[in-house]
Simulated assay, not measured.
Amino acid sequence: MSQRSFAPRRAARSFAAIATAGVLALGLAACGGTTKDSGSSSGGSAGTGSAASANPNAPIKEGLKLAFLPKQINNPYSTIVNNSGIAAAKEYKGEAKEVGPSDASASSQVSYINTLIQQRQDAILIAANDANAVCGPLKQAMSRNIKIVAYDSDTNPDCRDIFINQASSEEVGRSQVKLLAEQIGHKGEIAVLSATANATNQNTWIKYMQEELKKPEYKDMKLVKIAYGDDDDQKSFQQTQGLLQAYPNLKGIISPTTVGVAAAARYISGTKYKGKVVLTGLGTPNQMRKFIKDGTVAKFALWNPKDLGYLASYAAAALASGQITGAQGEKLKAGRLGERTIGANGEIVLGPPFTFDKSNIDEFDF
């Protein structure tokens, strides 16, 4: 898959505008201000204070070594994210690579972190399968001055320097419920098809889904099951089948995982449930295009995964070069994405999710 040619210019402009507007409107990437220096946080404890100080005028060091560690390799979504980050490293004359497990179990990333420490990487970028399982080795890496950037799925805050959040977790969770409710008339049984049971991002989104469902306008909707496909295509396919057999009155499924939503769509598209059970979630336009066009899915959402990897790459380079420490209020210069402000707990929000449907899906290619 190409590293730099997933989306046409029009799509890139659209996402840039969406991301910028979302940050301004939601105030989720913190307020503007001057860059903080002494007293800024570092060492994975963003916002708690440390002796480290940032030099926003420092140049990005040449020859930086970065490693992307996704939940699992060969995941189409992760491939897009990481390839974009690898390409970004070339812009600042760094070297980046992708390593990782073939399964998304809680402890599968630990051995890779240990190897990356031995290789003396300047930064490790991780989408954590489990917030706790990776903390020990990540802290070891930090003790050796290896910078840690979590992206897509966070670790515990004291185990990394910065978290690149693809969107406000609350907005993702609540918007998924709203998207489904609109299509089922705010009535009926619904289910969630998640990734792994320990995935930080999935669990946070689901928590906000459950909170949203407590509102009066959803009184006639009932969440009957949260199933886990472990970000495995075949297991997600089987879990979809199991949900529809176990709950014959099911009206809708939310699958906030690109692997899960595509597998669920593939199952529904060839069964009697097509046109009767509403499916939505988080997917990429290329994997969901045929299901939008054949009527299996009407709407789904996502952010630009290219921008997620790109932003994470520049954050890692800025940390390793001393431009930032991860403290709230610092400014990150993120190449073509412009300047971003670090929010509370070392978090930078890429932007709000974007809804794809039949009217716009052909404008995007990734």
Rank of each mutant, 00 (worst) to 15 (best):
G185P: 05
R174D: 06
A320L: 02
S50V: 01
Q234L: 13
R174P: 03
V110P: 07
S359A: 13
A67W: 00
A320P: 07
N145P: 02
N74Q: 11
P70K: 01
S107Q: 11
S313P: 04
T280N: 01
V134I: 07
D294R: 00
S40T: 15
Y112V: 11
Q183A: 14
I18G: 02
V81T: 07
A312P: 03
L250N: 03
T79W: 03
I60W: 04
I292V: 12
L28H: 11
A127S: 15
I268C: 08
K222A: 05
E171S: 10
I342G: 03
Q119V: 00
D230Q: 12
I18Y: 11
G32V: 05
S14C: 10
C135Y: 02
Q245C: 00
N129C: 04
V149F: 06
S321N: 10
L24Y: 08
S169P: 01
Q183C: 10
S42Q: 00
I361G: 01
P248W: 09
E95R: 12
G275C: 08
L279Y: 01
Y310W: 08
K139M: 12
A54Y: 00
S143L: 09
Q245F: 07
G136M: 03
F237L: 15
A12C: 11
P76H: 09
Q3C: 13
C135V: 13
L26I: 07
V177I: 15
I146H: 07
L193N: 14
C135W: 00
L179V: 05
Q234R: 11
R13L: 13
L193R: 13
A199S: 15
G85V: 04
Y314W: 15
L213Q: 06
E339W: 06
T34I: 11
K65G: 07
G229P: 09
V99W: 06
N55S: 09
A195G: 13
G295S: 02
I164G: 11
K187Q: 15
